[in-house]
Design a protein around this nucleic acid. Structure first.
Lengths: 231, 231
DNA sequence: CCCGCCCGTTACCAAAACGTTACAATTCCA
DNA sequence: TGGAATTGTAACGTTTTGGTAACGGGCGGG
């Protein structure tokens, strides 16, 4: 064990926050305050994981992420992005850049530690129990942020992806619009629940026939159809 | 239900704000103005969650947090820290000490309530302990919003579902039409009790033979048969 | 700087769900 | 047994809800 984690952030506070949380979980910490420094340390130390703030002085976290994922020497290292706003992460994460996970500020340390552990276990375990969700012909891969229907890829926007991801994660259980707003959009956003409908609609549109598995539960919310596996 | 939340803060305003928000969300509130008082009440009342200001007179919130998390009797209680944005260093330390989440001031009450709920849900049996109700061949799953008779799904409308849910929850006990109106429809609706009959009827219709378990108690209301199967 | 994409809002419509009324059936008691 | 109270049944108009289309703003990429 004893994995090392590189934390790249310009704010002293955040560095300490993340650092102490992870130290408490038994990780060795490497800190970097700027993008260039982070890149350098990533190459030099080859940490098991990188926690990366979206906003970094000098080089943006996005840029850095792209570089790390574009370099064969660092490509395999999981990256968790930190972002201030749920909005921000939407565009940024994973989708194009290849980050492996993200956490929005303010976040609970427990959550961060869990995600870090998850990513490390995943990357270590080699083939691992890869994080893929299914529902009928639908396959969603959270690692690569990809969705396929009968093997054919479907391009989703960030919000659509998170929405579908959450629904599938809680497959069979009804999710109220409010729940979805909280989990997908974040706490304290002033968005009306009707907007959820719209995104569900767009999702269904893109998924075509496979969208049959997204059920509307009138008066309550939405749900992914339970596959037949009684319990 | 009916969780209690301990709020520790020296500012009267914050106490009131947080208190009323959480009360509105259905929590029982215990207040404490100082660190010592908070510790005492935490031990004495064992609240479901503690909201803790970083800065407290007498004993700092950080100190208190450390103590609470170091004591087996209180370790399991989730702690949410309140911090003034300027003193980020404080929140860092607070988290280092094992707080479970934090909210920065100024915060929206809505967000705080959501985080409180989240933490409580997490600390309680983690994620959903599958709450499902039974009566003979009837199985009702509230999380999935599904009802089955002998394994076959039955589609209910929202009102029907809530009605059946309440009846089954209080299986064996007679529920008056008035009670049902209050609990299913809400407290201040002006709906005549006759309407309940209609929904019971529709329920019975959909449930088929399984509706035998819904008994009419003439002059009083309705009830789910306690022990059916006999006869 | 402009263009295009993504997102959130609004407006409108059809269908589902709801609550009321009217009436028939059942039960209880005199 | 008959009548009153109570509940079951049926039909109907209204309200609510979710699907759909279209609009405008914001942000990032070119």
């Amino acid at each position: 064990m004893n994995h090392s984690v590189l934390i790249a952030d310009d704010e002293e506070d955040v560095l300490k926050l993340v650092g102490s949380s992870l130290k408490g979980a038994g990780f060795k910490i490497v800190e970097a305050q700027g993008g260039a420094e982070a890149l350098e340390k990533a190459l030099e130390q080859r940490p098991s994981l990188i926690v990366l703030d979206v906003m970094l002085p000098g080089m943006s976290g996005l840029e850095l992420c792209r570089m790390l994922k574009g370099d064969n020497r660092t490509r395999h290292i999981p990256i968790i992005m930190l972002t201030a706003k749920a909005q921000e992460i939407d565009r940024v994460v994973g989708l194009e850049l290849g980050a492996d996970d993200y956490v929005t500020k303010p976040f609970s340390p427990r959550e961060l530690v869990l995600r870090v552990k998850n990513q490390i276990r995943r990357s270590q375990g080699g083939d691992e129990p890869d994080d893929t969700l299914r529902a009928g012909d639908l396959i969603l891969d959270r690692l690569r942020h990809s969705v396929t229907v009968k093997g054919k890829p479907v391009l989703l926007t960030a919000t659509e992806f998170k929405l579908l991801s959450l629904l599938m994660e809680r497959s069979g259980r009804v999710q109220t619009r409010e729940t979805l707003l909280n989990e997908v959009w974040g706490y304290d956003v002033a968005i009306q629940s009707r907007t959820v409908d719209i995104h569900v609609r767009r999702l269904r549109e893109k998924l075509g026939r496979a969208s049959d598995c997204i059920e509307t539960v009138r008066g309550f919310g939405y749900r992914i159809a339970e596959v037949q596996q009684a319990r």
